[in-house]
Amino acid sequence: MIKHHPQQNLLVSHANGDLPLSMAIAVSAHCALCETCREQLARLTEQAANLALNPDDAHAANNTDQESIHTAHIEAENIQSTQEPMMDIDAMLAQIIAQPMATNVPSNAPLDVQVKQQHYTVPSVFRQHLARPWQILGKVSRMRFDVNEMNTRASLLHIDALGEIPQHTHKGYELTLLLAGEFSDLNGEYVPGDFILLNSQTHHAPKTKTGCLCYTVLNAPLYFTKGLSKLLNPIGELIY
């Protein structure tokens, strides 16, 4: 059973579309795997929709609609005369209605990911991110996504059976979403769907018996804290 879920405020931000791509992917993938959060997100989306597009009360709504269309017309004309030409509202409506029905709707069936001759199933949100090469370092393989968010790194992380990541802390936050397989650390064992968000105070050393595939988001490189693995610090960036 999934025990680790995104916090309520993260779900609210996600419903409003306020999270950066790296985190939006994580919450979306979690919700694909977790029915409880999926239902919660549906409720929050409905609330957000009513706040943004609420049909006030019928009379007032009709009046404001007429008015704002009128103002939009005027503003459109004003802008037309001063800045670049702007489309007239009626022309926009006509142009939309001239378009045919959309036929290619992307499927949201789960996807197959292959790494080191092993197949894993991941949620469809990863659809456009799986084309990059795997970088392999011993039992750890990583496919880094191109999210363009300054220091934030988003990757798929695969750990082979009996592999582990040496004990480390993070300068920023570390999100791990287990997609397939299992791993454990000093806090216990994790199952697919578990959404584990750690801050810079947490030490941990995840290890897996049978192998696992995770999605990870980090906003600063790892910092290894124990024994010989400190030697890894210069290549911490490479691992995630």
Partner: peptide
């Protein structure tokens, strides 16, 4: 909304929620 109208499912939520999405 116009080109994907056939994807709307009234059982899954209101029009407002769908258009908001």
């Amino acid at each position: 909304v116009w080109t994907k109208a056939h994807l709307y499912n009234a059982d899954k939520g209101s029009v407002t929620t769908w258009i908001f999405t």
